[in-house]
Simulated scan of single mutants.
Amino acid sequence: MTDEQTNERGERIAKWLARSGVASRRDIERMIGEHRIKLNGKTVDHPATFVTDTDVVMVNGKVVEGPERTRLWRYHKPDGLVTTHRDPEGRPTVFDSLPEDMPRVISVGRLDINSEGLLLLTNDGALARRLELPTNGWLRRYRVRVFGVVDERRLADLAKGCVIEGVRYGSIEAALDSRKGDNAWLTVSLREGKNREVRRVMAALNLHVSRLLRTSYGPFQLGELQPGELEEVQARVIRSHIPRDAEGERGRKPR
């Protein structure tokens, strides 16, 4: 298909909504299956639906504005917040804690309720999806406080990867920073970021994680941000680090 033909047809609705910050493409495809999206008053029933600048798209009965410029924030997630827009248990969420003048954003990956530290937020769902991909090869670095006897040889062996309760984990770099009695601080770095990976791997080493703080996500650092604080990443920094997708596109251009 030529560029002219693509422009005439518009953009696939899942990508358009992802770039509008509604959700990831995967979540949008699920929402289409739940009949929650309309195009020009008609329910969308297939992700291979195209949107042009003259179309009206509604999600859950509300009109979605067109994609804005890509924006990205560094946020210091405090302990006790869940990384979800709506929690069925009524627990406080990351998004409830954001300033009222923030646009609608989604997170790049998640931190569980008891984890702290760097969480990236963006208004671009397509960007969030790309930054989560393990193929980026980005390190996620953590400071981890554990209770128990640390065996440094077993820590070093984590670099070879491991299998715990049938789940295979890739190479993990773990080093002992300090020890006081039965408590120790570790620096742990990994590239995959499976659900609760650090806690499960430490538990397999008979170590209980009492605090987990993410200090970096790829090239982005927690820095001096205090719990609850956030800071927007400059557009030039986004341009220098955002990975190209499979089609060699960068999505919305940060300005």
Rank of each mutant, 00 (worst) to 15 (best):
E4M: 07
E4L: 14
E8A: 14
G10K: 12
G10F: 12
A14D: 15
A18Q: 04
G21Y: 06
V22D: 00
R26W: 02
I28G: 03
I32A: 02
H35M: 06
K38D: 04
G41S: 10
T43K: 10
H46A: 08
A48N: 06
T49W: 00
M58N: 12
M58C: 13
M58F: 07
N60A: 12
G61T: 02
K62R: 14
K62Y: 02
E68Q: 15
K77Q: 09
G80E: 08
H85D: 05
R91Y: 02
P92Q: 06
V94C: 02
P99A: 10
S107F: 10
L111E: 05
I113W: 08
N114Y: 03
L120T: 05
G125E: 04
N136D: 02
G137I: 06
W138N: 12
L139D: 15
Y142W: 06
V146I: 09
G148E: 02
V150N: 01
A156M: 11
A159D: 02
G161P: 09
G161F: 08
E165H: 12
R168K: 15
R168Q: 14
K180E: 11
K180C: 03
G181K: 05
D182W: 01
N183A: 09
E192V: 14
E192P: 05
N195G: 02
V198M: 06
L205N: 05
L207P: 05
H208W: 10
H208C: 01
E224V: 11
P227A: 10
G228T: 08
Q234V: 02
A235C: 03
R236L: 09
E247F: 15
P254E: 09
